[in-house]
Design a binder for these strands. Structure first.
Lengths: 195, 195
DNA sequence: GAGAGTCTAGACGTATTAGTCTAGAACTAT
DNA sequence: ATAGTTCTAGACTAATACGTCTAGACTCTC
């Protein structure tokens, strides 16, 4: 083997830093190479394509975000799940910006690399399973209408409430939690989650 | 004068169609010209730059959206203002996709063209004035906390509730209005808007 | 009808990108 | 040591943008 000056993780870290600074569009292969002072050839020894790298970056970020969310749902605490978003955002401002200010398509331009498809599918399914679980707990069944409500209260409202602060690179104020919680109680009702 | 085969409006219409189909990134000068079978030279006789065209497109769209919103606020009907978003979305699916699925920066890449700056500033100010008016009506004063609540209930929640349907090019179902209205009443209280 | 200004027409220049390719350096296993 | 593999190194290719430039056609005014 030749000497390995630049690792898989090095490229990912550089990409993450570039994305945090100027968004995923600024994560070009040349920019990554320049930041590491690595040659482009080395990049393509580690990653099949730009999409492969950005797909990995996105997936790792979304899984980190999702972990705490899934736990609160499995613990049966819907309100905590709704408040997980502002909490995670406060603890991970840069990653939160990537996840909530941009869409998957800003990362992976073409088709998803085959190596990541499975991971993305599992991520999606896990998230949807959470919504179903919550819908059943909070609304008695998991029909389309209950799923729709669950999405609203667990995903749409929390991310919307946090967005403007992310745009300004600010930590969301406590008022955000209050707005989310008030909305939660109005839609779900007080104490409807399983104990 | 030479004969005018392609008008300002023709280019805007072509751009709007392209944006509706594949997003603002697909609105390249070449794509517009190809769609109209116009030469690029003609484009640059009408518009100073690509940003000038996309800026105009965005501003016209946002003003169309904002018009109904401002009216409901000036009529003192906060709930109607919150429900204006799903209503407008249903009546203008394509324009709504442009406005709510993409950000201003997906349209204008660099600095805003000088000719549009004033219009954008006035648009912003008018919107913020609405939020202030509402904050005073609904919460008694227009401090930062009241403005923040107003933003949540009039802008963030309605657009978030509608987003997933826009992504699927679907008309938002009535349930969306219910979710927005329930949230509105929870945050503002019933009948707090001026009569 | 002549001159001037405006628009059509599209080739061209320049920049930026993803990805390829060849050469050689360094390390490992035999 | 040496053969083979892996990685470094960066020039090169191809595609796609925006924007410019020159030539000529058209129309309006005088």
């Amino acid at each position: 083997m030749g000497r390995s000056l630049f690792s898989h993780a090095d490229f990912l870290a550089a990409a993450r830093a570039l994305a945090a600074e100027n968004g995923p569009a600024a994560v070009t292969v040349d920019a990554i190479a320049a930041r590491l002072k690595a040659p482009k050839g080395s990049f393509y020894h580690r990653f099949a394509s730009r999409d492969a790298l950005l797909g990995e970056l996105w997936l790792a970020t979304v899984l980190a975000y999702q972990e705490g969310f899934v736990q609160t749902i499995e613990a049966g605490d819907g309100l905590a799940a709704a408040l997980h978003t502002p909490a995670w955002v406060r603890a991970n401002l840069d990653d939160a910006r990537l996840l909530l200010l941009y869409s998957r398509h800003d990362f992976v331009q073409g088709e998803w690399p085959a190596a990541l498809r499975r991971g993305v599918r599992e991520q999606t399914e896990r998230f949807e399973a959470c919504l179903e679980t919550f819908a059943r707990d909070a609304f008695g069944r998991a029909g389309t209408s209950q799923i729709r409500r669950a999405t609203f209260v667990l995903a749409e409202v929390p991310t919307a409430a946090v967005k403007q602060h992310l745009q300004r690179r600010e930590v969301p104020p406590p008022l955000v939690d209050e707005l989310i919680a008030t909305t939660y109680r109005a839609i779900v009702g007080p104490g409807k989650a399983r104990s």
